[in-house]
Amino acid sequence: MVTEATVLVVDDETEVADVYALRLRNEYETETAYGGGEALELIDDDIDVVLLDRRMPDISGDDVLEAIRDRELDVRVIMITAVDPDFDIIEMPFDDYLCKPVDKDDLVAAIEQQLAARRYDDRLTEYLETTSKLALLEAEKTPQSIEDSDEMAQLQQRAARLRAEMDDALAEFEDIATAFEEIGRRPG
Rank of each mutant, 00 (worst) to 15 (best):
M1Q: 14
V2E: 12
V2I: 14
V10S: 13
V10N: 12
D12W: 06
E13R: 09
A17H: 04
Y20R: 07
A21F: 10
L22F: 04
L22Y: 05
L24F: 09
Y28Q: 08
Y28H: 11
A33Q: 02
G36H: 04
A39V: 07
L42S: 11
I43D: 08
D45F: 00
D45V: 00
D48H: 11
V49M: 02
P57W: 05
P57Y: 04
D58H: 03
G61L: 09
D62V: 09
D63F: 00
L65H: 04
A67G: 06
A67C: 11
A67S: 15
I68P: 01
I68Y: 03
D70Y: 02
E72K: 07
L73H: 10
V75H: 05
R76V: 00
I78F: 02
I78H: 03
M79F: 13
A82E: 03
A82L: 02
P85M: 12
P85G: 11
F94T: 12
L98G: 10
L98H: 09
K100L: 05
K104G: 00
D105E: 15
V108Q: 04
E112G: 07
L115T: 07
R119V: 11
Y120K: 05
D122L: 12
D122H: 08
D122V: 06
D122Y: 01
R123S: 08
R123M: 14
T131E: 08
T131W: 02
S132C: 07
E138W: 01
A139T: 09
E140H: 04
T142Q: 07
S145L: 03
S145V: 09
I146R: 14
D148R: 12
E151T: 13
A153P: 00
Q154Y: 05
Q154F: 06
Q154S: 12
Q157R: 13
A159H: 02
R161E: 15
A164F: 03
E165K: 13
M166V: 08
D167S: 14
E172I: 00
E174T: 12
I176D: 05
T178V: 08
T178E: 14
E181F: 11
E182Y: 01
G184P: 04
P187I: 13
